[in-house]
Simulated scan of single mutants.
Amino acid sequence: MPSEEGPALVVGVQGPDLPADPAVYEGRLPVECKLDDLPVGSIEDAFRAAIGANVGWINWEMLRRPDAPEVGFHGETKHAEVTLLFNTRTRELDERADDHTVLVHGRSFTVDGRQMREPYAHRLAEQVGLTVIGPGQRW
């Protein structure tokens, strides 16, 4: 039920029980929520059910990448994040999709014209039975 004294959010209601009338949400969206220290697997299904066909994302930050000495990489924490995109392909939420995308973020740098993180990205994908589907984002 909406709180008249707090911010314009619907609070205390589970996703499937949210009102279906779009007018209820006018002036209340988009919603941003930060939950700290939740393990992977604890919120994804509930979040997906709550947003339905809408777009959204979950971002995990402050991760530690494992060592991969066979590709010359020693684990690090700087810029180590993973983003799960729902019904979109971009973090800007501007490219709708009928599926979900996982973005694995990492620090990118080049030595002697050679990208040093791409072999590591491919190794991570292979470890979970997936492949890298596009080039790394360049800043």
Score class of each variant (00 low, 15 high):
R48G: 11
P69G: 06
S108P: 00
E26A: 07
L85D: 07
I43H: 06
L29N: 04
A97L: 10
G113Q: 07
F86V: 15
P30H: 04
F109G: 02
M116I: 04
L38W: 05
H105R: 05
K34E: 13
D67F: 01
A80Q: 09
V40Y: 06
T77N: 13
E92A: 15
R117Q: 11
I51F: 11
I51W: 06
F47M: 08
V111I: 15
A97F: 06
R107V: 13
W57A: 13
T90A: 09
A46Y: 01
T77G: 15
H105L: 07
V31W: 12
V82W: 00
E26Q: 08
D36R: 15
A68R: 04
V24Q: 04
N87K: 09
D94Q: 05
M116C: 05
P66S: 03
D45M: 07
I58W: 04
E81R: 09
V31P: 03
E26N: 04
E70D: 13
R96S: 11
A80L: 03
F86E: 05
G106S: 12
A68I: 08
R64A: 14
L103G: 00
A46H: 03
G106D: 11
L35W: 05
C33A: 14
G41C: 10
N59S: 14
R107N: 07
V111R: 14
T88W: 03
D98V: 01
W60C: 11
L38G: 02
G41W: 02
C33W: 06
N54C: 02
P30C: 04
V55F: 00
E81H: 01
G52W: 12
L103V: 11
E26F: 04
M62Y: 08
G41F: 05
G113W: 01
P69W: 01
G56D: 05
V102A: 10
F109Y: 14
A97Q: 10
R65W: 14
T110I: 08
D98H: 08
D99H: 12
E32P: 00
G52Y: 12
L85M: 09
G56Q: 02
D99I: 00
I51L: 08
G27L: 04
L85F: 05
D94H: 01
I43R: 10
T88M: 11
V24R: 00
P22M: 04
L103F: 09
R91E: 15
G52L: 08
D98T: 03
E118Y: 10
A23N: 02
D36L: 09
D99C: 10
N59E: 10
H100L: 10
L93A: 12
A68E: 11
D37I: 00
E61V: 09
P66G: 07
P30A: 07
A49K: 10
H100K: 05
E26T: 09
D112Q: 13
L103H: 07
E118A: 08
V102I: 15
E118H: 09
S42W: 03
R117C: 09
D67L: 03
E76T: 09
L35H: 06
D99P: 11
N87V: 07
R107M: 14
A46S: 14
R117Y: 10
R28W: 06
R64T: 13
K34C: 00
S42K: 07
L103Y: 02
G72W: 01
P22N: 06
